[in-house]
């Protein structure tokens, strides 16, 4: 899809063959625009900040990308609520000390995987639409968060979690490093692993996949479990980044993760897409928000304008074929 944009704007030159040229062009335009608006836009500090937010969003969108590629109407509306729940649980279990962090991590990652698996079972075995299952699931997960938060009110994170959220290693924010590792791992998973090959095939035609002997159910359940796991992991990062947990901290990430994946070229019809694309989508989304903050706009107008820009980006990258 981004290649299509390139064909339009660049007149079918060889540039159209560069992967993600559409997304890269938008990013370049946003960077130039940002610098024109505010000379400190391209300062290392601001760029690291944007990259950190992008990395967080990219990790939150990783599971979403897998689910959307898996096709069959796959979409995960429980990402935000899982992130909220994990932030609340890590906060409640670990408190402000580091001692219980490993235990808390094990619990939330396991719980996230289970929630994803439950979504997958609903979608695969009950034949319900993923949109509906995960919508209902997100009510339940939010409810769990509410119940948990009553018994263990959220606290400030301990040094380890906080360091992951806002600290740096060799001058590079931990979030960016983690995002890079996740990007490499996801790309290897999609491009090189057996699971990755199977995922694209299942996503593009599930009947053909089962006729070719691909274990469709295993691929789909793995995908959903991975989505829950990755959302839980993103929730931990979010808790570190925001340095507090509340009942709606993860909510915006549900839709932002879908937007990042789709802007990045993942087809909602399934069977096509890449994680690098999603990362670029996340960068675009974060750059827009950052730019609007730099312009000194309040949250209300920021919402409105980022919505308008999202419409423009959608128009440029992902119009439905007739």
């Amino acid at each position: 899809m981004s290649a299509r944009l390139a064909n339009i704007s660049l007149g079918r030159t060889s540039l159209g063959r560069i992967p993600h040229v559409g997304s890269l062009g938008i990013i370049l335009a946003l960077l130039i625009l940002g610098q024109l608006v505010n000379p400190s836009f391209l300062s290392p500090m601001n760029l690291w900040a944007v990259l950190s937010v992008s990395a967080l969003l990219a990790v939150a969108s990783a599971g979403q990308t897998l689910v959307i590629i898996s096709g069959n109407q796959g979409i995960d509306l429980s990402v935000g609520s899982v992130m909220t729940l994990t932030a609340l649980i890590v906060s409640g279990m670990a408190g402000s000390s580091d001692a219980a962090v490993p235990m808390a991590l094990a619990v939330v990652l396991g719980l996230g995987t289970l929630i994803g698996l439950a979504n997958g079972i609903g979608a695969r075995f009950l034949g319900l639409y993923p949109l509906v299952v995960t919508l209902g699931g997100s009510f339940v997960v939010e409810g769990l968060g509410l119940v948990y938060a009553r018994s263990r009110p959220p606290q400030m994170p301990g040094p380890m979690i906080e360091n992951i959220g806002i600290g740096r290693f060799l001058g590079i924010p931990w979030l960016v490093l983690i995002g890079a590792v996740v990007t490499v791992a996801m790309t290897l998973l999609l491009r090189k692993s057996r699971y990755g090959r199977q995922l694209y095939l299942v996503g593009s035609n599930i009947r053909a996949a089962s006729a070719a002997g691909i274990p469709v159910t295993r691929v789909l359940l793995t995908t959903w479990a991975a989505s829950g796991f990755l959302a839980a992991f993103a929730g931990v990062l979010l808790y570190g980044y925001v340095a507090s947990a509340n009942l709606s901290v993860g909510a915006p990430y549900t839709m932002m993760s879908i937007a990042a994946a789709v802007i990045g070229g993942t087809a909602l019809s399934g069977g096509a897409g890449s994680f690098v694309g999603t990362v670029l989508g996340a960068v675009i989304f974060s750059l827009i928000t950052n730019l609007l903050i730099m312009l000194g706009l309040g949250p209300a107008l920021r919402y409105a304008i980022s919505g308008l820009v999202l419409i423009l980006v959608l128009f440029a990258t992902s119009r439905d074929a007739r």
């Binding site: 979409i75 879908i258 937007a259 209300a300 919402y303 919505g307 308008l308 419409i311 992902s318 119009r319």
Partner: peptide, 20 residues
């Protein structure tokens, strides 16, 4: 545009205006 994403985008616009 894809209905899911297009209306998601307008929801931002409309909420922003409402908050404004």
């Amino acid at each position: 545009l894809n209905p899911l994403l297009a209306t998601f985008a307008t929801s931002f616009v409309l909420l922003g205006l409402a908050l404004q």
